[in-house]
Design a protein around this nucleic acid. Sequence first.
DNA 1: CGGGGATTTGACACATATCAAGAGCGGTGG
DNA 2: CCACCGCTCTTGATATGTGTCAAATCCCCG
Lengths: 256, 256
Amino acid sequence: MDGSIIAFVPRMQGTASQDNVACPPSNCTCCKLREACVLEECHHESVATRLRVKRGEALFRAGDRFRLLYIVHSGFFKTSSLTEDGRDQVTGFHMGGEVIGMDGIEDDHHKLTAIALEDSNVCSIPFSALESTCSREPMLQHRLFKLMSKEIVRNQEIALLLGSMRAEERVAAFLLDLSRRLQERGYAGSEFHLRMTREEIGSYLGLKLETVSRTFSKFQEMGLFEVSNKHISGLDRAGLEATMEEAGLQRAAARA
Amino acid sequence: MDGSIIAFVPRMQGTASQDNVACPPSNCTCCKLREACVLEECHHESVATRLRVKRGEALFRAGDRFRLLYIVHSGFFKTSSLTEDGRDQVTGFHMGGEVIGMDGIEDDHHKLTAIALEDSNVCSIPFSALESTCSREPMLQHRLFKLMSKEIVRNQEIALLLGSMRAEERVAAFLLDLSRRLQERGYAGSEFHLRMTREEIGSYLGLKLETVSRTFSKFQEMGLFEVSNKHISGLDRAGLEATMEEAGLQRAAARA
DNA sequence: CGGGGATTTGACACATATCAAGAGCGGTGG
DNA sequence: CCACCGCTCTTGATATGTGTCAAATCCCCG
């Protein structure tokens, strides 16, 4: 695995509500995951607050004043940018252990909207407190720099996907990424529920929903997985990777 | 203007070589711009080193060990990612005052290659020294966080461009961005030399070089600017913005 | 002054978008 | 518990934007 910046990778078995029984949403002093959290030191200072977000609700919206960074504790989010000219695009899907909100640091206002795709729990930390703690805790500062760098790289990878891949490669890359992240969190990597619609996948991948649907059907025919509505099973990671490589070879051949 | 994170915006009149006469490439103690530099505090510590990079040379390459962050002092760079499967894409063009290399913080290795598109001068700062200084200088830490956030947002904007804009909009957005940044640096915003080839522009915008060329020709016919090889003049910013808005309206109409 | 890469332009191909219709599924209320 | 409604998804037919291929010109660099 990569020398993960995000050490906090919960292996959630219980539901969000069960968690909340034991951990009231006021602070994280009893957080079961604090030892492993990216921003661990903040727990010691008791500056983190637990929040529940229901499916469909926004954690923050584009234009909101930025104050907090959020760590997804359980659940699933999408972030999207909605520009004044009506352009709307999903920029990411976020699951347990991932940090959301770093787009707001630049000028104290969020550029993105974060919406829960299922009932979720997040940990919120005032960025100003985080900065203070960083000054005293070089390791925390170091991890935060790495975390932001990782977010830069992630966005560059999306740009690479959007700028240079065909529809099939994009969809394969999307599924492989999702599968890998679920597996890292202790879930099966070959069988999972998609929490987002075809339209949201398409928006993320720069494709129309019909193209996503068609590609799913085609992959199913190829035996790369079974898809039934939002449920994926029997995902053949090696097969998907081979599909991507083939497309890459074609590109290389075309160039030669 | 935006509450610029990058306070260091040189108004270069002289050439790179003239600069170097006065400022040997050993350190920045005599840097004319240190007062305004993003990473000002580092100059006080004399940890910054000036480098010259000739046109075509690499500042760093993908896979290189990451140690330094670079501030472009004069000149012009492109950064690009080159993956093992032969995918190659320009991820950005960088001019005076901009910081390059933040993609390497994540795991101590650069993901991108940075190549000078003209003879250039950069200031290099060991990242470890920067981190140490940050711990003592909260304002520097704060600016560095903002700088990285800005880079995150920039990459999101590229993704938005690649995922949702048509060729004409992309080219218009590219020229407007370039024009704005040149203007901020004291150059004319309506007349400038393109330092990159059509192919590099295309790679950055997710288009083929022929499409870039055709779009340039079309814009010229529309009277939005004159283009002669790499020279642009008479750039009509308002006209380009109108072109983008029209495309946006079409999109909105299509959706309704 | 020669040569090779860069650019332009045209003709054509193809991937994906668009438009359209119908089926499936999930939630809601009777 | 069933029936309905709306949203999501699938699939087909067609349109279109951009890629691909090719050739000529241009221009910069040596």
